[in-house]
Design a protein around this nucleic acid. Sequence first.
DNA 1: TCAAAGGTTAGCCGTTCTGCTAAACGTCGT
DNA 2: ACGACGTTTAGCAGAACGGCTAACCTTTGA
Lengths: 119, 119
Amino acid sequence: MPESPKGRSRKKDAARTLEDLEVVFDALAHAQRRHILMALHFRGGAMLAGDIAERFACSWPTTTRHLGVLRDAGLVEVRQDGRHRTYRLNAARLQSVVGDWLGHFTPSKAPKSRRRTKT
Amino acid sequence: MPESPKGRSRKKDAARTLEDLEVVFDALAHAQRRHILMALHFRGGAMLAGDIAERFACSWPTTTRHLGVLRDAGLVEVRQDGRHRTYRLNAARLQSVVGDWLGHFTPSKAPKSRRRTKT
DNA sequence: TCAAAGGTTAGCCGTTCTGCTAAACGTCGT
DNA sequence: ACGACGTTTAGCAGAACGGCTAACCTTTGA
């Protein structure tokens, strides 16, 4: 499916958003994956795979799979670093996808307004 | 499962919050359940079960089950109305649980950030 | 070249989820 | 009381999920 650089139709944009919602909320549905995101955040946004895996009781491959789900959701990014792998939190995407969706539920306000705590 | 329909205690919410996160994010993991919440919101916050069920392609019992998940998560409340049942959105809880969790990831609150992502 | 360290992939297995249909339940109108 | 209506519950089948172990790659270092 070719991607229009600038002239993205609103329909596809909406579809893209729906897909984002699905993959992100699906990733957030598991406690350990939420925990991984937290750990990443509280350790400055980036950790080695081994450091992440050691924090959890389950086996390393299981954590690897969770990291894969988070990566497919775009919530973390991987970078090979020698024989290590560094996972970096993508907090902006988390805020964007979840925050935008949550913003639709603001009580009696314009549902498309961005999260601006200025009012 | 012992769930008190009354207000939740605000004191020892530390353990309760984790449980809330789990049940709420689990409820939000399914597209139709998110869609139900949206429909409720955009129809003024309350709908009859039948009106909800008619909006979706799946069978009525399936929607009933989704509504049950949302109700167990505290995201909707039910009220028997004659032989109808009115489902009401609990947007406050949605905002509270999801928004609070999301608030941990704000860059301004980064606890030990070595590198600060530009705000 | 060999072996160890760091991670991932492959495959299995039990549990949970989601969909359906059929049946039951409570309420209203007659 | 009876039947129709609105909705839930029960039960089942198939798919998806999450855990594990074992095997596999890749890089480092001797």
